[in-house]
Design a protein around this nucleic acid. Structure first.
Length: 461
RNA sequence: GGGAAAAUAGCUCAGUGGUAGAGCGGUUGCCUGUUAAGCAACAUGUCGGAGGUUCAAUCCCUUCUUUUCCCGCCA
């Protein structure tokens, strides 16, 4: 007897062989003489139907084969007499690994709200929706590694605990072994971090970029793919306190190369998902967003629109649309502005050349003295899915910017040194992994594309 | 961090100043292969917590908690 997963079983052409399948019961229906068990093992969105004859299985036994129960079925794979499926298992033996009392098991056969499922995040992977989302998430993660590996990039593991707080990407979570009720103090009353585990103040990383640059200036092409932590009190469907980010960093790349790579990568990932997650995406398209597949295909088909920040402001000023906030050169683009730009161009838009005062210190300064070589990629509904830039490789210019923006340079000495020793043009960007999964799955809340979301006031599970 | 809405059965929601209802789910029964099966019957409950107004509060008021949405921060 062969022990197989359901995905493989549904693809086998032949019938007649004995098979063993283990999985979770999605539903059971039938009558006194026959029971039909929908079994899912997570390998695919599709279930296999197991048929239990009352001559072999008692009513009393089948009572425990209820929605949510985990069982192993052995029997013959046969052509189905019903119309809903090509093959089914004629059960000879059923072993119950674990029951799920129907009176208290929270998942029903019928649909649940996504809000409710968030409250039972320990069980929601057993639903069609989350099974699909988590499988797509996996394939995208794999595709990212494949994309970069195939291009000769090296995966660099940047630290999760960081001693630098100068990255400026957001509020940070402190890391300490202190007893918070009784922290050591210096003579002037401040917390004495010299007695803490690392002997200095440490935080969870908000970005691996600065360390990524160090790798790029040695290995040439690197990318990071790891957890990232932001202690911002962000209450939106697009923000997480703990999320995964992909940050490639490339030596000898300018802002144009950077855009080319980012666009190629996004298209590769969407195409990969369409090819490898067809069944799951079809399900999501049917259940949540009828335009999903069309939108995914449209992203692959045409080039992303590329405009400068200055052009974007011009478009927003002359479009005639009334905005709540006026678009004005020197100010950040509002959500409503981003939405307009994406709608106006009918797809992803890359905006470059932002005013230097609204961007980070490390971005390459343009000769105009006003703008930097930043790029944001704006996606429909999601907004900023990628943020990146060419980096300032000139030591004097970088140092000047660090001083202007009052960034403590003592903690960045190692970063600044790379511009003293064998500096070179380089560029990189950050892709929010969950925002990518959001776009590909058509989900609308980022809390539904990560197994156990961390958001303000929520760290359950 | 700013703003708005919401919290009633296991779930989705309706509802009323006199302590509550539907659909689904559940339980039981019927039906010889079903497809979110069908038919019938039954049971659902501190109406989010704490105060207050009132003869009486699930309903009105205050406050707290949580959730969702919009904005900001960003990926």
């Amino acid at each position: 007897m062969s022990k197989v997963r359901i995905k493989a079983l549904l693809q086998t052409a032949g019938t007649g062989q004995e098979v063993v399948v283990s999985g979770w019961v999605r539903s059971r229906r039938g009558n006194k003489t026959i029971s039909f068990i929908e079994l899912n093992d997570g390998s695919t969105i599709h279930n296999i139907q197991a048929v239990a004859d009352a001559n072999l299985f008692s009513d009393e036994f089948l009572k425990d084969v209820s929605t949510g129960a985990c069982i192993r079925v052995s029997g013959n794979l046969v052509a189905s007499q019903g119309s809903g499926q090509a093959v089914e298992i004629q059960a000879k033996e059923i072993h119950i690994y674990g029951t799920a009392d129907p009176q208290v098991y929270p998942l029903q056969k019928k649909g649940h709200s996504l809000e409710f499922l968030r409250e039972i995040a320990h069980l929601r992977p057993r639903t069609n929706t989350f099974g699909a989302v988590l499988r797509v998430r996996h394939h995208l993660a794999y595709a990212i590694h494949k994309f970069f590996n195939d291009k000769g990039f090296f995966n660099l593991h940047t630290p999760i605990i960081t001693g630098s707080d100068a990255e400026g990407a957001g509020e940070m979570f402190h890391v300490t072994t202190f007893d918070l009720k009784n922290t050591p103090r210096t003579e002037d009353g401040n917390i004495d971090y010299s007695q803490d585990f690392f002997g200095k103040e440490t935080n969870l990383t908000v970005s691996g970029q600065l360390e990524g640059e160090l790798g790029a200036l040695a290995l040439g092409l690197i990318y990071t793919f790891g957890p990232t932590f932001r202690a911002e009190n962000s209450n939106t469907p697009r923000h997480l306190a703990e999320f995964w980010m992909i940050e490639p960093e490339m030596a000898f790349h300018d802002i144009e190369d950077n855009m080319d790579l980012a666009e190629e990568m996004l298209k590769y990932l969407v195409a990969y998902a369409l090819e490898h997650c067809a069944a799951d995406l079809e399900f999501l398209n049917k259940m949540y967003d009828k335009e999903l597949l069309n939108r995914l295909r449209s992203v692959i088909d045409k080039p992303f629109t590329r405009i400068t920040y200055t052009e974007a402001i011009e478009i927003l000023k002359t479009c005639g649309k009334k905005f709540e906030y006026l678009a004005d050169w020197g100010k950040d683009l509002q959500k409503e502005h981003e939405n307009y730009l994406v709608e106006h161009h009918g797809g992803p838009v890359i905006v470059t050349g932002y005013p230097k005062d609204i961007k980070a210190f490390y971005m390459k300064q343009n000769d105009d003295g006003k703008t930097v070589r930043a790029m944001d990629i704006l996606f429909p509904w999601i907004g900023e899915i990628i943020g990146g830039s060419q980096r300032e490789e000139d030591h004097a210019k970088l140092l000047k910017r660090v001083e202007e923006m009052h960034i403590p340079q003592e903690s960045l000495w190692w970063y600044l040194e790379t511009r003293k020793f064998g500096t070179c043009p380089h560029a990189g960007f950050g892709l929010g992994f969950e925002r990518l999964v959001l776009f590909v799955t058509g989900m609308t809340n980022i809390r539904d594309v990560i197994p156990f979301p961390r958001t303000p006031k929520n760290a359950e599970f």
